[in-house]
Amino acid sequence: MKRRYGALGAMAFTVAIAAHAQAATKAQELDVAWFKDGHQIVAARQVINSDEIGPNPLLYSSGEQVPSARCIGGGNNVKLKGELVFVGRSLFVQPVAVHGDKARLLVSAMDTTSDGTRQTGPADCRSLVVDVHGLSEKDISVDISVGQSVDVPMKDAHYRLVLKLNDASM
Rank of each mutant, 00 (worst) to 15 (best):
M1D: 01
R3D: 12
R4G: 01
R4P: 00
G6M: 13
G6K: 12
G6F: 11
A10W: 03
A10Y: 00
F13N: 10
V15D: 02
A16F: 13
A16E: 10
A16G: 11
A18F: 08
H20R: 12
A21E: 14
Q22H: 15
Q22R: 14
K26Q: 13
K26W: 07
A27L: 10
Q28W: 01
Q28G: 11
D31N: 10
A33H: 11
A33K: 09
A33W: 05
W34P: 05
K36G: 01
D37F: 03
G38V: 02
Q40M: 10
V42M: 03
A44D: 12
A44I: 05
A44Q: 08
V47K: 14
I48Q: 09
N49H: 14
D51H: 10
E52V: 13
G54Y: 08
G54Q: 12
P55K: 07
L58S: 04
Y60A: 09
S62A: 13
G63D: 00
Q65K: 04
Q65D: 11
V66D: 02
P67N: 09
R70P: 03
G74K: 02
G75E: 02
N76F: 07
N76R: 08
N76V: 09
N77W: 04
G82I: 03
E83K: 03
V87Q: 04
V87H: 05
G88Q: 01
S90I: 02
S90C: 00
L91M: 01
V93T: 02
P95Y: 05
V96I: 15
V98R: 06
H99P: 00
D101N: 08
D101V: 06
A103Q: 04
R104H: 07
R104P: 05
L106N: 15
L106G: 08
M110G: 03
D111N: 12
T117H: 07
R118W: 06
R118E: 10
Q119I: 06
Q119D: 09
T120S: 15
T120F: 07
T120A: 12
G121N: 11
G121E: 11
P122A: 13
C125N: 07
S127L: 09
V132A: 11
H133R: 15
S136K: 08
S136A: 12
E137Y: 07
K138P: 06
K138N: 14
I140T: 15
I140P: 09
S141N: 13
I144T: 10
I144P: 04
S145W: 01
S145K: 14
V146E: 11
G147I: 03
Q148M: 06
K155E: 05
D156L: 00
A157D: 11
H158S: 14
Y159Q: 00
R160E: 10
R160N: 09
L161T: 02
L161A: 05
V162Q: 13
V162Y: 04
L163F: 04
L163G: 02
L163T: 07
L165V: 08
L165D: 08
N166C: 04
S169V: 06
M170W: 03
